[in-house]
Design a protein around this nucleic acid. Structure first.
Length: 301
DNA sequence: ACTTTGACCTGTGCGC
DNA sequence: TGCGCACAGGTCAAAG
């Protein structure tokens, strides 16, 4: 479910309540998610204070005042929510047996009082890990740059995909090349840049190693879709605060994703959105206005 | 070294 | 209304 914008939205929802909160108790309702909970997790967290809530790629990073760090990945169906926020009296949340509320932090915040943070994950593709030092996490090692950072630009991307025959769709899903994109936003970015998902990634690079204009378009499109999606997620945070709801999912409208058979939304394009399978994942695209890499932009001469 | 395929799980929506 | 099947936003390990 969650790609970079969703995880960032979760982070922004959690941060105001978690930062400065003391973790009074940790409840684990099963031994594992995708992987086993670290054996020391409960002991290390109880009594600690959350210093910051960060994000890297699709990972949430809870930094503790004592120096440790909790890393959390939401998998496909993971979500966080608060219960009892704003209640005058501390009230413990008791999950339904057999449900999907796998981890609960009972928190006390100087401003917000006592409340619970609940992690739910029906498919259990998510996981939680703990490190004394963030640098120890193998999940963070080897990740590509954040797509919204200055380190991610067309020349960088050109160096990473030069000579690669893999489809550009596949390359963009590779977290070592760029970190945080998933199936939806890759489809959306390729659509915006008018690039066919099946194009070999290396075809976006000129023989001299510099990015072709199409690759520059692609980088700009990636940035734009992410920025817009984060902005859309931000609007759901108001609802979340008001409704004590779930963090991890928000309604967002997509231009091509999951629109197979519907008309292409590009102005003047008469195409119909098509679906194909690449590396076992659905790709949605417009076969009319998305072109091979060699195409020239309308404004180029 | 590279790329593709299966596996991990449960829930949902569709066609029959 | 029920049943079976295809499919789901991610990642890792194994197989080609």
């Amino acid at each position: 479910m969650p790609e970079l914008p969703e995880v960032e939205t979760v982070r922004r929802g959690l941060a105001p309540y978690l930062t400065g909160a003391r973790i009074a108790a940790v409840t684990l309702n099963r031994a594992d998610l995708r992987f086993a909970f670290p054996p020391e997790l409960k002991k290390r967290l109880e009594g600690e204070t959350v210093a910051a809530v960060g994000r890297r790629a699709k990972y949430l990073l809870f930094s503790l005042a004592g120096g440790g760090m909790v890393l959390s990945h939401l998998g496909m169906t993971g979500s966080y929510r608060f219960t009892h926020l704003g209640f005058a009296e501390p009230t413990r949340y008791h999950p339904v047996p057999g449900g999907h509320d796998h981890m609960i932090w009972s928190l006390v915040h100087p401003e917000h009082g006592a409340f619970d943070l609940v992690y739910a994950d029906p498919r259990r593709f998510g996981f939680v890990d703990y490190y004394e030092d963030a640098a120890q996490s193998p999940y963070l090692a080897g990740l590509g740059p954040e797509p919204l950072s200055n380190a991610f630009d067309a020349p960088y991307l050109a160096t990473r995909v030069a000579g690669r025959k893999a489809p550009v769709k596949t390359a963009l899903l590779d977290q070592r090349i760029v970190a945080g994109l998933g199936n939806i936003y890759v489809c959306e970015a390729l659509y915006r840049a008018h690039i066919l998902p099946t194009v070999a990634a290396g075809d976006l690079v000129a023989p001299d190693g510099r990015p072709k204009p199409a690759l520059e378009d692609l980088v700009a499109a990636i940035r734009a879709v992410l920025v817009e999606a984060i902005a859309a997620g931000g609007s759901t945070l108001r609802d979340f605060r008001a409704a004590d709801g779930e963090l991890g999912y928000f309604q967002h409208s997509f231009s091509v994703y999951d629109r197979e058979g519907e008309p292409c939304l590009t102005p003047g394009c008469a195409g119909t959105v098509a679906r194909l399978v690449q590396s076992g994942r659905s790709t949605f695209y417009c076969p009319v206005c998305q072109k091979p890499a060699a195409h020239k932009r309308p404004d180029s001469s």
